[in-house]
Structures are given as structure tokens and as C-alpha cells.
């Protein structure tokens, strides 16, 4: 099932306090690409992947969008369904969603429009080999 809005509000709400892996505290709207990269570096077992948006479609679930990514060096195809207000962090750009207006309305979080070709930050488990 898709991720529902009820899972979203608190940590994407403007002003939400985020703890980086270094222990540093930042507001969600102040996060920068380097904060995620550095956090992954000091986290055991997690790695940052570059996930490029290759397609954005309407979902079969009303009120959702289906996002298609190619992920990491392997260029694996991964699809997820999210509400259009769900923010993703785009490298060098910051928070972006399919519906920046709705994100601003619900979370007061300033967002760019997420587009095909954007490279988002995602995480996966670090390979043990």
C-alpha cells in the first residue's frame, strides 16, 4: 500500500527538529545536501544512493502519484506511491515535491517542483561485501 499522509506531518512540518548522525540538531527547512551525506558517512550500515526520477504518473490509488526511480550505481528500477505533497530532497536543490503548493499548505515547507531528471537522496543498507 502507498505511504499515506497520516505518516507525513510531523517530521516534514516546517520547524521540525532533525537530529543528524553527528548529533547536530537542525530544522528540517535548513537541511542541506551535505547534512545527509555526512550523516550517512558516520552512520553504520546505511548508505546514500542517488535516485533519479525517470517517470511521474498518476497512481491507481486516488490522490496518489507513482514515482519511478533508477537507484544507485546499479541503476535499479524502484517505484513508490506517495501523496503529491510528499517532499523529497533533491541534490543541490533541496526539498521538492510533485505539488509544492500542497506541501506548503500542509507543512509550511518551501518546496521546488519535483521533475523527471531530478536526483533525489535515498538510503539503503550498506553492502557487507
Amino acid at each position: 500500500p502507498p505511504i499515506t499522509s497520516s505518516h507525513l506531518p510531523s517530521h516534514f512540518m516546517k520547524g521540525a527538529i532533525i537530529q543528524l548522525a553527528t548529533g547536530e540538531l537542525k530544522r528540517v527547512e535548513d537541511l542541506q545536501t551535505q547534512d545527509f551525506v555526512r550523516s550517512a558517512e558516520v552512520s553504520g550500515g546505511l548508505k546514500i544512493d542517488s535516485s533519479t526520477v525517470v517517470d511521474i504518473q498518476e497512481s491507481q490509488w486516488p490522490g496518489f502519484v507513482m514515482l519511478h526511480f533508477v537507484v544507485g550505481e546499479q541503476q535499479s528500477k524502484v517505484s513508490i506511491e506517495v501523496p503529491p505533497e510528499h517532499p523529497f530532497f533533491v541534490y543541490g536543490q533541496g526539498w521538492s515535491s510533485c505539488s509544492p503548493g500542497r506541501t506548503a499548505q500542509l507543512f509550511s515547507l518551501p518546496c521546488h517542483r519535483l521533475q523527471v531528471g531530478d536526483v533525489c537522496i535515498s538510503i539503503s543498507l550498506q553492502s557487507l561485501n
Binding site: 543528524l20 544512493d49 528500477k77 524502484v78 535515498s122 539503503s124
Partner: peptide, 25 residues
């Protein structure tokens, strides 16, 4: 005087999607 209030703190990794491709057999 303002009483200190507890504030929720969220871990950084809760903000980014976990996009792990399913492993081929």
C-alpha cells in the same frame, strides 16, 4: 517566564526514502 517544553526530535534518516531494489535470486 517561559516553561521549557519537550520537543520531538526526528532522526535524519526518517526524512529520506529507503529505496532498496529487491534482490534477484
Amino acid at each position: 517566564n517561559v516553561e521549557p517544553r519537550s520537543v520531538a526530535v526526528f532522526p535524519w534518516h526518517s526524512l529520506v526514502p529507503f529505496l532498496a531494489p529487491s534482490q534477484p535470486d
